[in-house]
Design a protein around this nucleic acid. Structure first.
Length: 566
RNA sequence: CGGGGAGUAGCGCAGCUGGUAGCGCGCAGCGUUCGGGACGCUGAGGUCCCGGGUUCGAGCCCCGGCUCCCCGACCA
């Protein structure tokens, strides 16, 4: 492709409202254009990258035996009433009324239609297993789209759905998708880790996220570099250090003037934070609950939600705390009936704790659980952090930031049951198919790749997802010799099957170098009067510093292939 | 939904105490340049987010609304 004929306009300055690196670079390189919050146009150079990613996904899905289908973006709301998600989906479904006054929805995902599709082709266990997938537009009216393509409302997603006769089959289908995902991300040249994840409101047993490690990511994952344990912080477990056992002593009240926080309390009492009990107040369905955890740990709201059976806990407001009669800074469940108490299991790993006395400026020493108070639930509700012990080995956990680019989980029979995707088993009994679902956000993957691969000049794209492989810059094209050499190299590269963007514009060299850096194509080739004097062209990998290597014109194609990594 | 910020040329921005809108980049033409966004001359380009109000006069003041961004909430 000749730059002069390509529909592309690069920007020296990014629009002021783009702050995230990938957003700025996508705009500056002319890859996307914002239409509305979280809704984008994709221009030719951006769409090429998207298409490459989709191509890789498609190949690996097919390799894994999945079959491509297509399902509608616009769907009748009735279908969502059947699945029970019409009013529960978060964010709420985007809806409209068609001219026949039918309530329609814009699909945020496709479990309903794929289950319907499966139902049509499923009657016997002999029909199973099968996996269907599509690469399709979704619309989710996110409360807060942001950061360019990282969090959008309209987006392309690859979604796959497996159908099996039994749990062992589901496990196999799931594993096949996991392997496909690993290949996809690896082929895209990205460092993606699979982590244990919270399955969210949908429930289900196994759920894994694929996280692209990047400092700008909005997710935190914890990884043990010894055994490979990896989990989203929402889900991560860890070894809670046990304290030396002590003989339980008698509870005693003591004055702690002005002490409000665990840090102040530990300093005042001259004990480590782990010898204290932290009480946190959450409003759950309007009721204030007291959540107790050892002072050195923090509450994980996702774990808390799960032990509460899915009810959403919200940190109690100041007013709610006052109304409940709790003394913030000196609270504890000791001697305080009438509250639902949830305790972290860390309270069992020690004795003679210090806790609040429920009086301003007073605390209790030698509090022992469960001797001195009761809890409705005792469970792991603590947040893991860097440096904590790995739950599976003697290693330590390291924290990384990352971007969720894929999510797989085992749905089981939730949808097949409700929507009647049933089959007859060997004994003639009707059973719901067991489903798994597997998603990859295509645009987010591109944005994530840029977040993870850029420098201060622009993108540094992995070859597999770069829009072109070579940026060929002709520097003095008004010179007939240079033009002839550049044109010939352009032709030769195309004949060799290399995707090349040929910068044949009448622009100053600096402009071309900057656009080469900005667009992040893997290899930059410069044809210039200067290099041609020695019969050479310059070849440089985008990730390399300074000038590239001079290679004889006759060896250019081979040398370019070598730098490309062929 | 709560908090904060912003809408003026394609992009980045300035515009005082209200007097009829400007700079840089980009764009078009001509010329000089030609290995890191080079230079000169000429030129085109505006619903100052929208609606209402105050005023002789509003980009600027007042009222109402819309859109976008950031933080949080939220996030299958």
């Amino acid at each position: 492709m000749r730059f002069s004929r390509y529909f592309i306009k690069t920007l020296r300055d990014a629009p002021g409202d783009a702050e995230t690196v990938s957003h700025r670079l996508l705009l500056r390189a002319g890859m996307v254009q914002q239409v509305a919050a979280g809704i984008f146009n994709y221009m030719p150079i951006g769409w090429r990258s998207i298409s490459k990613i989709k191509g890789i996904i498609r190949e690996e899905m097919n390799r894994a035996g999945a079959m491509e289908v297509n399902m509608p973006v616009v769907q009748p709301r009735e279908l969502w009433e059947q699945s029970g998600r019409a009013d529960t989906f978060i964010p709420p479904l985007a809806t409209f009324v068609d001219r026949r006054e039918r309530n329609m929805v814009l699909a945020p995902t496709h479990e309903e239609t794929v289950t319907m599709m499966a139902k049509g082709g499923l009657s016997s266990y002999r029909d199973l297993p099968f996996t269907l997938y599509q690469i399709q537009t979704k619309f989710r009216d996110e409360p807060r789209p942001r950061a360019g393509l990282l969090r959008v409302r309209e987006f392309e997603m690859k979604d796959a759905y497996s159908f099996d006769a039994d749990q062992a089959g589901l496990d196999r289908s799931f594993q096949a998708m996991v392997e496909a995902y690993k290949r996809i991300f690896s082929r895209c040249g990205l460092r993606v880790v699979m982590v244990d994840a919270d399955s969210g409101a949908i429930g289900g047993k196994a759920s894994n996220e694929f996280i692209l490690l990047a400092d700008s990511g909005e997710d935190t994952v914890l990884i043990c570099d010894r055994c490979g344990y990896a989990a989203n912080v929402e889900k991560a477990q860890f070894k809670k250090p046990a304290l030396l056992p002590e003989i339980p002593l008698t509870v005693a009240k003591f004055a702690t003037p002005g002490v409000k926080t665990i840090e102040q309390l530990a300093a005042f009492a001259r004990v480590p934070a782990s010898k204290t009990i932290k009480a946190v107040f959450y409003a759950v369905e309007g009721q204030v609950h007291i959540i107790c955890i050892r002072g050195d740990l923090d509450v994980n709201e996702i774990k808390l939600r799960n032990v509460l059976g899915g009810a959403e806990p919200k940190l109690a407001t100041h007013e709610e705390v006052l109304k409940a009669g709790l003394v913030a800074g000196s609270a504890s469940p000791v001697g305080l009936p009438g509250f639902t108490v949830v305790a972290d299991d860390s309270l069992r790993l020690g004795n003679n704790f210090i806790s609040g006395a429920n009086e301003e400026g007073q605390h209790l020493s030698n509090v022992n659980f469960p001797r001195d108070f009761e809890a409705e639930v005792v469970a792991d509700i603590a947040t893991a952090k860097a440096g904590d012990g790995c739950p599976n080995c003697d290693g330590r956990l390291t924290a990384y930031r990352g971007i969720e680019v894929g999510h797989v989980f085992k749905l089981g029979s939730v949808y097949s049951q409700k929507m009647g995707a049933l089959f007859s088993d060997e004994g003639g009994a009707q059973k719901p198919a067991l489903m798994g679902c597997y998603g990859i956000g295509v645009g987010r993957l591109l944005a994530g790749a840029i977040e993870a691969n850029h420098d201060d000049k622009g993108m540094v794209l992995p070859r597999a997802i770069a829009p072109f492989e070579v940026y060929l810059a002709g520097l003095n094209l008004e010179d007939a010799n240079v033009k002839a050499a550049a044109d010939k190299l352009y032709d030769d590269l195309q004949v060799a099957g290399i995707e090349v963007l040929y910068d044949d514009r009448d622009e100053a060299p600096g402009v071309k170098f900057n656009d080469a850096d900005l667009t992040g194509l893997p290899v930059r080739v410069v044809v210039s009067k200067r290099a041609l004097q020695s019969g050479s062209v310059e070849i440089k990998h985008r990730s390399g510093a300074g000038r590239g290597e001079l290679k004889p014109v006759g060896e250019a194609v081979a040398a370019i292939k070598a730098v490309l990594g062929e």
